[in-house]
């Protein structure tokens, strides 16, 4: 039942748009093409940033830094139930979407998409955002310098997200 719901969500959207294209009054296919072109632009624009950050994350992993740091943190991490493989993702997530995409896809390649760490990373990646980046952009756009309790609240929500994701994945999948 639950499996069907999650498998159906995406086809539902595709079929709904298909129905709009079939019965809609205006020419929605032009809208589709415009949007798809934007999507292409976004992913092409992503590549230069991603090249730099994928190289950096790959170097970090190859140097043994990730492993050493993970080993150092593993007693703590195991105690609170967070897989240590998540470390690069957790460190980059608040700052940059492309850096965390790099960390996320490297992680999936290393431990597999269906392992506990891969599943936890997926839930964290989907339900958190680039906290520092978003808040900086929002407030600097209106020249606000005192962000007051914005950062503490946003980081508290993100911490909650990390712990809850790992807890839920253990409960849900294993």
């Amino acid at each position: 039942m639950l499996e069907t719901v999650s498998a159906l969500a995406m086809p539902t959207v595709v079929v709904a748009v298909g129905l709009l294209l079939l019965f809609g009054k205006s020419n929605y296919f032009d809208s589709f093409l415009r949007g798809a072109k934007q999507g292409l632009q976004i992913s092409v624009n992503l590549l230069p940033t991603l090249v730099a950050l994928m190289v950096a994350v790959a170097m970090l992993n190859a140097s043994g830094a990730t492993e050493t740091l993970s080993n150092l943190l593993s007693p703590v991490a195991a105690h609170v139930g967070i897989p240590t493989e998540l470390l690069p993702l957790l460190l980059t997530r608040p700052f940059s979407g492309s850096a965390s995409t790099a960390a996320y896809s490297t992680l999936l390649e290393q431990v597999g998409a269906d392992s506990l760490a891969g599943l936890c990373a997926s839930v964290i990646f989907a339900s958190s955002d680039t906290v520092v980046y978003v808040i900086a952009v929002y407030f600097s756009s209106v020249n606000i310098r005192h962000t007051r309790y914005a950062f503490p609240c946003a980081f508290a929500v993100m911490l909650f997200c990390i712990f809850f994701s790992c807890f839920l994945c253990r409960l849900w999948f294993f």
Binding site: V13, V14, V17, L20, L21, Y28, S31, F32, L33, R34, G35, A36, K37, Q38, G39, L40, I42, S43, V44, L46, L47, L50, V51, L53, M54, V55, T101, A102, S105
Partner: peptide, 21 residues
Amino acid sequence: AVEVTISLCGMMCLWCGLMEV
């Protein structure tokens, strides 16, 4: 990085198109 971009690109196009509709 190129592999990741390629595996994202098709989905990005499709999804941005659908959402624009």
